[in-house]
Nucleic acid binder design. Structure first.
Ligand code: FES
Ligand code: FES
Lengths: 141, 141
DNA sequence: ACATTCCTGACTAAATTGGTCAAGTATAGA
DNA sequence: TCTATACTTGACCAATTTAGTCAGGAATGT
């Protein structure tokens, strides 16, 4: 079970945005430099974040991105959903009555993985971008 | 974030074992047929489970595998540890003081992922093979 | 002897990841 | 108006990981 860079980068970048977008829009170049993430890769990520109304874009010189909601309204699961970083624990299709391995009934572990998925998602639903920033400020003090 | 088949199979196979090993050792062939898992792949998995003292092997005709502890003593994290299915959320090396992206300090999200890792692992530490079986019996009634 | 089952290492096809590259379009400021 | 900056979009790709397969051997019960 591991977190992919896409999800990690999305959250890093948005945390960066939340810190710096209050005065001016933040360019991907700045984020790239500050956070050490490939600019080209960031572009892919922000395209998705924009489609999901998590950020707004401003083109042209001194353009960049701005959060489209307040940090406390952006939960981690919104971010993950936007960049298709989904938590997938079961093998089978959930809607189908068939199990993994193609059998007619769900396997012994099916329900366990489903519980796990819920457990993990509850973490993402609770945490907002604001929580993340707060913790970081406290840490510095 | 997804669970790999290796981890899923290991738990499925051990659940099968727990159900059937009380009288005779269970052969991988049986597990393979019942659970629909490749025999060759199961062999790789059981090698690791054996090295970690989760199962014992009996060779020869009518041989097979048996749990080496009681189902309530085998927690999911023991199983996952045995087959190297680790939960990995941070990018950086935890011990090192350096961050991901090679910077001198940990990134903004580091602590968040660490919390997530703890959150997930607590699920695995709580659940035992016995819990899994119990839930399944209840479900059938 | 022989069938069964565990044991072990080497190999591989397919999918996923984590990007890069190229070619735009829009806008601000000189 | 020209140009630099920055977003937009699609195509492409190398490296890694996953989920196995294959081939052979070693132990043991009948
Ligand atoms: S994971 Fe859903 S049936 Fe096995
Ligand atoms: S994940 Fe540890 S420093 Fe970024």
């Amino acid at each position: 079970m591991k977190l992919t860079s896409k999800g990690r980068y999305a959250v890093m970048a948005l945390a960066d945005l939340a810190q710096f977008d209050s005065i001016n829009p933040v360019s991907l170049r700045d984020i790239s430099l500050r956070q050490g993430i490939s600019l080209d890769y960031l572009e892919q990520i922000f395209l998705k974040l924009k489609k999901n109304q998590i950020v707004k874009s401003i083109r042209g010189t001194h353009g960049g991105y701005v959060l489209s909601k307040k940090p406390n309204e952006i939960k981690l699961n919104n971010i993950f959903y936007a960049v298709d970083e989904k938590v997938k624990t079961v093998q089978c299709k959930k809607e189908s009555k068939k199990g993994c391995n193609g059998k007619a009934t769900k396997c012994v572990t099916h329900n366990l993985w489903d519980e796990l998925e819920t457990h993990i998602n509850s973490f993402f639903e609770k945490k907002s971008l604001e929580d993340l920033l707060k913790e970081n400020i406290e840490r510095r003090i």
